[in-house]
Amino acid sequence: MRADRKAWLGAGIVALGLLPPVADLLQARLPTHVLVLLPLLAGGGAVAGAALARGRPAGWTAAPSLLAGAATLGFWLIPRWIDAALAAPAVAAVRTASLVFLAGLPLGWGWAQAGPVLRLFVLANAAAMLAVMGWIELVVPARLCNSYLLADQRNLGLGLLVLAGVVVAGAALRALAGGDQADATERATRRASPRMASPQEPSATNTITAGIGSRKP
């Protein structure tokens, strides 16, 4: 898909999340608010960010972009701001703008620029933090968001735990299967570090022969 079409796709995803009936429906319950609406807004920005990164290699921007995006996303996950966005349209507007441009866009850009190690590092940390957040939602005895019931909070906790498991399982299955990822990985590696350590020779043999007979004088 062409970059400009992807940018439009991203805008479409954001617009879908902002449609009054959809937004109202999703904001009616805490799990759908956090697990569907916020990802829609950030996801739309991320699609556009990834499209922008196409043809603009800048590997050094990957980590800062992902960090900035994650920090913004983390801010809007704070219960106090979830409540504020429901109570004040101005805060909701700021949230929408920042989730699209300060969370989604840098996340999409950074993800596209990142190599496989950084991507998996992000996923591993995301899984761990999703699990921790899920545990907090489950064990805190009081309501964290004034706008939602305790039952919603517990459901969100379970949802976050399931999401953590899905992230780990998905990444593990993808790494096990490899496939075309291997070629992309190799290209990314060579682009990132042309002076990296290189293997002695391709291991196309089924025996360990490397080094045999290579005794030093």
Binding site: G115, P116, V117, L120, F121, A124, A175, L176, A177, G178, G179, Q181, A182, T185, E186, T189, P199, P202, S203
Partner: peptide, 17 residues
């Protein structure tokens, strides 16, 4: 671990391989 995994995936086509 991720770096070693990346190297193996790049060379062999996946951790399964």
């Amino acid at each position: 671990c991720l770096e070693m995994g990346r190297g193996i995936v790049a060379a062999y086509g996946g951790l399964g391989r």
